[in-house]
Each structure stands twice: as C-alpha cells, then as structure tokens.
Amino acid sequence: MTALPPTSAPTLSNASVTCDNCSHFKYMSYTVTYSIVFPVGLLSNLVALFVFLWHTPKKTANTVFMTNLAISDVSFTLTLPFRLIYYSRECHWNFPDWLCRWCVYSFYVNLYTSVLFLMGLSVLRYLAVVHPMRNKTLVTVRRASLACFGIWVFVALMSVPFLMSGTLKDGEKMRCFDPGPQKNWIRILHLNYLALVLGFLIPFSTILICYGCIIYKLFAGRKVRNQKSRRRLRSVYLIALILTTFLLCFLPYHIVRTVHLHAIVSRGNCRLEGFLLRIPVLTLCVAASNSCLNPIMYYFAGERFRTSFQRASRRGTLSSDSFRMSLQWRNRSNRSVMNHAPITVLSQEEKPEKPDIK
C-alpha cells in the first residue's frame, strides 16, 4: 500500500485549531493501549464467536445479541494494527486515504453498536426477570436478529459523516485521525451532541431503568430456593458487568469529549487545550478497551456460554489426550512386535548383493 500523492490531500498548515497535533504522550498512550487491546480483544472475541457459532446448539435471543457484539469487536480490533503503525511512526500515515477514513468510521460503529447491543441485552434480562410469561411469547431468535440488523443499519448510517475526514498533509507527514479546519471541528461538535443523546444518554437511561426494576424484583424480600438464588446471582453479575463497562468505558469518554470539543471550538489558550488533550487520550484508550471486557461478560454472566465453552475445552482436551494415548499404544505395540519377532538368517541367495565398484 502506498500513500496518496501530496497534492491529493488537503494541508494542515494554517488550518488546524489544535495546539499539539500529535504529542509524545498521545502517540505513546495509543501505542501501548492498542498493543494490548489488539491481541487480547481479537483472540478472546474470536474464541467467543467460535463458541457461539459452533458449540452452542440452541440459539437464544441473548446469544444473537452477544454474537453481534463479538462481531463488532472483532471488526474493530482488525483496524488496530494500522493505528499502531501510525502512532509508532509518530503520526505519519503511509496507507491509502480510504483506509484512514475506514479506521475512523469503524471506531464509532464499534462504539455505538456496543452500547446498543448492551442495551438490548439489558432489555432481554428485564423481560426474563420481571415479565417471564410475556418473555416466552415476545422474545424470539428471529426478532432478536431483526433488532440487531436494525442496530447495525442505524449506527452505520449515523456514522457516515465520520467518513468525510481523511488524510491531511502536514509538512513531510501525512496525518490521519485529525479533523483539520475549524469548520470540521464545529461539525464534529454538532455530531457529538447527536451521538451523546442517541448513542449514550438514551441507552444508558434505558439500562438504568431496566436494572432498577430487576433489582427491585430480585430483592423484594422474597425467600427463593437455591436454583432461583443462582439465577438471581447471574442477573446481578450481568448488571455489575454492563454497568462497569458503561461507567468505566463510555461515560468518561463522552463527558470529556464534549468538554474537549468545546475548548477547541472556542479557541481558548494552548495551555488549557494542552491539558485537556491528555484527558481525552486516556478516556479514548479506556473506551477502546471495551472489546476486551465483553468476553468477560459472556463467560461470567452467560451460563449457556460458560457451559458451551467448558464443553468445547473438554472436547479439545479429550481429543488431544486420545490422540496422545493412541500414539503411545501404537509405539508400545510396535515395540512388542519387535521384541517377539523371530530372528531370521538370510541365505546366501537372499543376501543383498554388494554393488560392483569399478
């Protein structure tokens, strides 16, 4: 892959409103974060997809949402090597312009599909606990698949404006992930409020309402049996993990991003902007790491996933053990045959002739 010619990209000179386009703190933070998130997130979500698609015989609505969440995380982690190369070269983009746009686009698609899929899982848990009878007739795999498809389409269309920002020429370097002119930052500020309401506040409020009803239902002073208490514990695990993901990964990022965008658009002093630059970097690193937290939720909060994962692991262990035992048995049999085989002496006619050396 080769970068676009310098004349084909807009320049960053006299157009950027940021005081520091790529500080050492920024590219070091991103390099370290993506070096961890890429292998851990990719491997764990591929394992989750393998379990969901091949070792989960009975698909449920929860499985459909978790499968789509894992697909979203895998597609995002596949773009991280390009970001790693970019920041390891101190912000020099050596790939095509369309790939820069796609990396920006995939981040926001993953971010808001993850939010909405987590909201969907919370609504499903709410129906299962608070309205169990209605849940049996209302929640189906087909409806869950349609809901996930709707989420993909909605987020993909709403994230199209992020495809408008490509590479920018800055001296001898080609920049990526930088909006550039002032008007672009104003447009992003408007998009930020739209994403803040539709992609965070509404889903987060929905999750809080669902979990408030679930907690009230579960801890209403009723005495439950052991089986129900185990089910209640799983619901508490799911609540804790999803709320942790929101409070740790999504809430700080959205708050800090809004404050930072206002500071840039208002064109304050560089000292304030430089201070605010470090905090969004940290919150974005934490937001990008949500792809590593989701597989933990699958394992600890999903009993069906945990059972399927353990079954798949047991099958792999058993197959490797049986293969090892068959090799040992074959070697032992060959040794036994060699020990008990009759020793025969070749006759003169049967002995191999020595080749004539002339």
Score class of each variant (00 low, 15 high):
Thr31Ala: 14
Asn45Tyr: 05
Asn45Arg: 03
Phe50Lys: 09
Lys59Glu: 14
Asn62Trp: 04
Ile71Gln: 03
Leu80Ile: 09
Phe82Ile: 03
Ser88Cys: 13
Trp93Ala: 01
Asp97Ile: 00
Cys100Met: 01
Trp102Asn: 08
Tyr105Thr: 08
Phe107Ser: 03
Val115Ile: 15
Leu116Met: 11
Leu124Gln: 08
His131Gln: 12
Arg134Gly: 15
Lys136Thr: 12
Thr137Tyr: 04
Thr137Met: 07
Val141Gly: 10
Val141Tyr: 03
Arg142Ser: 12
Arg142Gln: 14
Arg143Glu: 11
Ala147Tyr: 08
Ala156Glu: 07
Ala156Arg: 01
Met158Cys: 07
Val160Ala: 11
Phe162Gln: 02
Leu168Phe: 06
Gln182Cys: 07
Lys183Gly: 02
Trp185Lys: 03
Ile186Asp: 06
Ile186Met: 09
Leu194Arg: 02
Ile214Gly: 01
Tyr216Asn: 13
Tyr216Lys: 15
Lys217Tyr: 04
Arg222Val: 05
Leu233Phe: 08
Leu241Arg: 04
Cys249Asn: 06
Val256Pro: 00
Arg257Phe: 06
Val265Phe: 02
Ser266Gln: 09
Asn269Arg: 05
Cys270Arg: 10
Pro295Ser: 10
Glu303Arg: 11
Arg304Met: 09
Phe305Lys: 04
Gln310Ser: 07
Met325Phe: 13
Met325Glu: 14
Leu327Ser: 07
Met338Arg: 15
His340Ala: 13
Glu353Leu: 12
Lys358Glu: 12
